[in-house]
Design a protein around this nucleic acid. Sequence first.
DNA 1: GTTGCATATAAAACTCTTTGCATATAGAGT
DNA 2: ACTCTATATGCAAAGAGTTTTATATGCAAC
Lengths: 191, 191
Amino acid sequence: MALAHAILVSLLDRPQTGYELGKRFDQTVGFFWKASHQQIYQELHKMAKAGWVQSETVAQSDRPNRIVYTLTRRGREALDAWVETPTEPPSVKEELLVKLFALGDVDADTIVAELQRRRAYHVDRLAWYESVMAEHYPEPDQLSPRRRGRYLGLRLGIMGEKTTLAWCDEALALLAGAPSKPRGRRVQARS
Amino acid sequence: MALAHAILVSLLDRPQTGYELGKRFDQTVGFFWKASHQQIYQELHKMAKAGWVQSETVAQSDRPNRIVYTLTRRGREALDAWVETPTEPPSVKEELLVKLFALGDVDADTIVAELQRRRAYHVDRLAWYESVMAEHYPEPDQLSPRRRGRYLGLRLGIMGEKTTLAWCDEALALLAGAPSKPRGRRVQARS
DNA sequence: GTTGCATATAAAACTCTTTGCATATAGAGT
DNA sequence: ACTCTATATGCAAAGAGTTTTATATGCAAC
């Protein structure tokens, strides 16, 4: 009930093939909703069956035919209806923090290494978001409504990455020099 | 392959019943890994079958028997092994941002209302995290390793909520006074 | 009386990930 | 030359994970 909607949103811009959607997802809506190609193909079939999109095959000789999907009126209505339904805050799944939670009982060095990897990841993301911002939103005043929404998405991305980065540094600082092997209270593990 | 590990982590502290795990999840590990009671019961069965936990039934007359789960050596090993495996960054699912992405084609008022609701939610979360912080971590220096991990989790929670809150304000400010009905370029919807 | 808490189970429905299959071209590496 | 890899394009099915919904019992509180 949600990947479908992300696809609808992407199709607002223009008709696209599953492949294009997949590519484009990685750079636009996909900032906020990850999906693999397979997932998208699957979902498109369902959406076609539901009448939300209409497909048109474009023959190609050199490679598999393209199947271009277009938003239908029904799809458009489904999108509007979805926008009206309340959005739940995303449910959290932060594996790294679960590991951190086990600190004291598990090896700290590993976790520190993870934190470093994670930090690097966020540095990348941040750089990526900032380059998009510089390229596409150099003057964030007077944006059209359409561009306003996307700008705000990017803003959250940038703000979030900066925060997470700051947190990584704090965490690494706090864990530096800490005893690396778990010590103290042992677990009572039964055989 | 991950809720199970969150449960293992919780069981490190002490043996617990499914019910207790569910309650406790909401306040501890559950900050970073949401799970319902049903999910936990289910998972406990699997974990018992895999030998990661051992169950012991405590008879009760007034209400259903309690089934207390204890971490086994095998479970402990599984936990250690999991800590060693690299953690992927969480995959993003931010429905609200997908909606924002559609701004310009869909009704803006609805989205503004959502943003306000979301803002209130984050105010709550922040207050909750800060009260836990004040109560349990008034002096964040010289924490034991165990408490260090949990402190850091809380820190991220607080920092994240503050950031999101700031973003909500920014977004609301930007969208205030904007035209509320979609206008401009219409979608080419086919019948 | 109804609601809430304590405690557990089960099945359906849905979503997501993984794996594997197909096919053709272009480019890089050895 | 030969092989490997990447890109472009799609399909299908199995498994893993999650959410939703329903069922069951007894007490306490409102």
